[in-house]
Amino acid sequence: MTEQDPTTPEDTETPQAKPPVRVFLVDDHAMFRSGVKAELAGLHDERIEVIGEAGSVGEAVVRIQGDQPDVVLLDVHMPDGGGRAVLDQVHDALPEVVFLALSVSDASEDVINVIRGGARGYVTKTISGRELADAVVRVAAGDAVFSPRLAGFVLDAFSEKPGTAPVSDPELDLLSPREREVLKLLARGYAYKEIASQLFISIKTVETHVSSVLRKTQKSNRYELSRWATDRRLV
């Protein structure tokens, strides 16, 4: 990424040479799709370009494989299996396509489920257009996007409670103290830049920690995570 230096990741002065991130929208509500498109277009953000959209799981699977976008904005709740179904059918075949889940749901089951399905981040639909654009750019660059709520869920899942099953794989099932600190600041609503200055580390390091937490969230066998991921409720 271009901005490893203390300049903000939200910085819009991205090198002009860089092609825009090609974004694909998946949501079964046409109204929401057009709203997101209009909002992203209204930003006049050259980092982002919406190249396509789909309104169903089947259509999404076909068109994502055809269009090969950089980032897919994925609705969690759709008929025929929802976002998880799209992930399951596309993610293994096209690992270079990055998924960012976008949902109205705050239920831990939904959040953890798409994350474990391979999404690089989770934001709620009430996010502002500006923040959404930043999140898209960030996942396109290979980082993870944690909303405060997702950070809270992950902290909860990795917390040591009495009665928790013993850890079988410390590498995956435990968070390092630093990762925990980063997560807590995320949950408190800090941006990466703010976390970096708070902890006296570089933004790059913050990103590394967050990616590591994401990997652990996806791979760990901790009871909470697998329970949340299977205990899925579709609305």
């Binding site: 405060p148 809270g152 807590k184 949950a187 408190r188 609503g189």
Partner: peptide
């Protein structure tokens, strides 16, 4: 506003933050 609360190690903490 961001509000984050945690219960850990016998202490409850609440952070209320605005930008």
């Amino acid at each position: 506003l961001s509000v984050y609360a945690e219960v850990e190690g016998g202490t409850a903490s609440v952070f209320v933050r605005d930008r």
